[in-house]
Design a protein around this nucleic acid. Structure first.
Length: 677
DNA sequence: CTCTCCCT
């Protein structure tokens, strides 16, 4: 029924032909976690070293148990010693997480384990939400939140223990924190004010890198607690991983009980929507009298209501199949999953400092990610994982993903490092040092934005504006837009706009959005471009009381728009603190466009021919993204928020500007660049 | 004629 294409041999998924391996150990109840037998060793290792590395499988309890162990051990010790110094300092224990949900849910769980409310002894701190009191000693927080705190105090003196959890993920924020805590360790040792202990926790990968970085810090292995998972690989490389996944799905479907859920990892919305459609068609065709399947897509840009469907229990005689992007890898835990199908790919954004281009493309996953996906099959009972790539290919995958810091524009990171008083970025002690070209590009960008100025040999200092820009949790280009709008009396409008630009798209984009809905959306269109259109949507949302109904009718992503409202509130407070001129321009929108032009002047494109544009910065040939209201129109000069290469090079979120605005605000920059003047 | 995912 599902036939393999003729150009390659059909895939065989038969356990006898597959290489198989079993991972992990049987489960035990929470109080008998293997980690409890290592309690003494853990405490001793942390307190007798400046820094140590703990490696642990998922489910070993390190995140929930270790902060508590350390707190309890220290309390006991201080009771005996009556250490006065410790009472003067806050002595907090921080445990960072890459994701908000993790920080919040772990804190709540640990609090309940000690029979307290969250926000008492154990609390959390994430953007827009915290549960912290004077009594709080153990603070679960997002890595980004601790990084923000480091801007105010680079030595993080509130904390006596800092735990960097999920370090193998190599998020931008955790990687920057590595450099910061290392510096804090040295300073606080020298100053002898109070000591700091750093603990790096990671999946079992890349030990040497972490250990070497912290002067051969000791490493402790923690045993995992997971149900066994049988892992199967295909025998030959698959040319079509979607097709291979589909065949595997139906093989599992035919041979296992219907109550065993299946989770398929694919790379993006298009693939997922289309495979869900195919699954439905195959079952409906009835050629093989298959038992019914409910295929459920799962990706970030869905309504919350649709996302929640994956948590709902399906009727007993129907198979639940979830087809997910990597959101299902770490962010959302779905109950009832017994089988995982891993296509071995992920869509990733990479920045090329040479060309200044960002590329969004499908790439092979790392071994760490493969294990993460595999682990999703064994949360509640033993499971199986089918990998759509041969075992040899798995062996050749990189053990961990390329750190985010090495594949993103460094402007924001560089501004933060400079704001912490490090004047030469190249001397910052990176765990993995970015390309010098990447650093240079960031410094050039910040210089153009008048955020920094060179002082002498490779050192830079912040300008007055730069100091203000570092206060905003924004891309420096957008911070510049805010400062510019303050000068042009349209900061109220720009606050709304910058907030929308800080969230994922506010339009729902699923494939079942038809022409009629698109027409519906056109009523928001402003001829000057996407930015004013977005502003229009925001204002209409507010005047319609932010209701669900309004969002439903207009196919607007309410979650993202509400998030934008929260961001606006936060940014506005920062503007007040910085004593910016907060005025509204009413409907004199050309002022808003001028302010945009001042922040986005490095993102200018001129019309060339046949729908092609050329960027004035690096002379890339680009097209207007089909999602733009200016798609098909041919304005001669535009600014854009983002340039990204997918199937083509696209510019997104575009506004028509007057060349004169650009030249007046930045004569030096545009003297040689603009061809129309 | 189209947008992986987090986070301040």
């Amino acid at each position: 029924m599902v036939k393999a294409p003729p150009d390659h041999s059909p895939m065989v998924v038969d356990s006898q032909d597959l290489s198989s391996s079993t991972i992990m150990n049987p489960i035990t109840s929470p109080n008998q976690l293997p980690i409890h037998s290592m309690r003494k060793k853990i405490i001793q290792t942390v307190f007798s070293n400046d820094c140590c590395i703990f490696l642990g499988e998922t489910g070993c309890g390190k995140t929930t148990q270790i902060p508590r162990f350390l707190y309890e051990a220290r309390e006991k010790k201080f009771k005996n010693l009556l250490n006065k110094k410790s009472q003067r300092n806050k002595n907090l224990i921080a445990c960072t997480q890459p994701r908000r949900v993790a920080a919040i849910s772990v804190a709540e769980r640990v609090a309940s384990e000690v029979n307290q409310n969250c926000g008492e002894l154990i609390g959390y701190s994430v953007r827009f939400d915290e549960a912290i009191s004077r009594r709080t000693k153990i603070k679960y927080m997002t890595d980004g939140m601790l990084l923000r705190e480091a801007l105010l105090d680079p030595y993080l003196r509130q904390y006596s223990i800092i735990i960097l959890d999920e370090a193998h993920e190599r998020t931008l924020h955790t990687d920057l924190l590595f450099g910061i805590v290392k510096q804090a360790l040295e300073y606080r040792k020298k100053s002898q004010k109070n000591s700091l202990h750093v603990l790096v926790m990671s999946a079992t990968m890349n030990v040497d890198l972490f250990s070497n970085y912290f002067n051969q810090a000791p490493v402790l292995y923690l045993q995992g607690r997971q149900y066994p998972i049988d892992v199967f690989h295909v025998q030959e490389t698959q040319t079509d991983y979607i097709h291979a996944s589909l065949i595997t799905l139906f093989q599992i479907h035919r041979t296992t009980p219907l109550n065993e859920g299946i989770l398929i990892f694919l790379t993006g919305q298009d693939e997922i929507d289309s495979i869900c459609k195919t699954i439905k068609q195959i079952v409906a065709s009835g050629t093989e009298s298959l038992e019914p399947i409910i295929p459920l897509p799962l990706y970030a840009n869905m309504t919350t209501v649709k996302q929640m469907l994956v948590f709902k229990q399906t009727p007993e005689n129907i198979r639940k199949v979830i087809v997910s992007t990597n959101i299902g890898e770490t962010s959302i835990t779905i109950p009832g999953i017994r089988h995982v199908i891993d296509c071995g790919r992920v869509k990733t954004k990479t920045y090329n400092p040479q060309t200044g281009l960002e590329i969004l493309q499908v790439q092979k996953i790392s071994q760490a990610q493969a294990w993460q996906r595999t682990g999703r099959a064994g949360r509640e009972c033993p499971g199986t994982c089918y990998r759509m790539y041969p075992e040899e290919e798995f062996e050749q995958l990189p053990s961990t993903p390329i750190p985010e810091l090495l594949r993103c524009n460094l402007a924001t990171a560089a501004l933060q490092i400079l704001a912490m008083g490090i004047t030469n970025i190249s001397t910052f002690d990176f765990l993995s040092k970015p390309d010098e070209k990447s650093i240079a590009a960031a410094l050039r960008e910040l210089t153009y934005l008048c955020a920094i100025q060179p002082s002498n040999d490779n050192t830079y200092e912040l300008t007055d504006d730069g100091r203000k820009m570092a206060c905003f949790p924004l891309d420096p280009k957008l911070s510049r837009c805010l400062l510019a709008s303050s000068g042009l009396n349209c900061l109220e409008e720009m606050l709304k706009l910058v907030s929308i630009m800080s969230v994922d798209t506010i339009f729902l984009t699923s494939s079942n959005i038809n022409e009629k809905m698109k027409m519906q959306r056109q009523k928001f269109t402003m001829n000057e471009g996407d930015h004013l259109t977005l502003l229009n949507v925001y204002k209409t949302f507010i005047s319609n009381k932010k209701t669900k109904e309004w969002c439903q009718i207009n196919k607007i992503n309410r979650r993202n728009l509400l998030r934008a409202c929260a961001i606006r509130k936060q940014l506005r407070r920062i503007c007040i603190e910085l004593q910016l001129n907060i005025k509204s321009c009413g409907t004199k929108y050309s002022l808003v466009r001028q302010a945009l032009a001042q922040g986005l002047f490095m993102n200018v494109a001129e019309y060339l021919k046949e729908n092609d544009y050329r960027t004035i910065n690096d002379r890339h040939i680009v097209k207007i993204h089909p999602s733009s209201v200016l798609f098909g129109a041919k304005p001669s000069v535009v600014v854009f928020t983002e340039l990204i290469q997918t199937t083509k090079r696209f510019i997104r979120d575009i506004t028509v500007v007057e060349p004169d605005w650009l030249i007046e605000s930045n004569p030096e920059y545009f003297k040689t660049r603009l061809s129309s003047k």
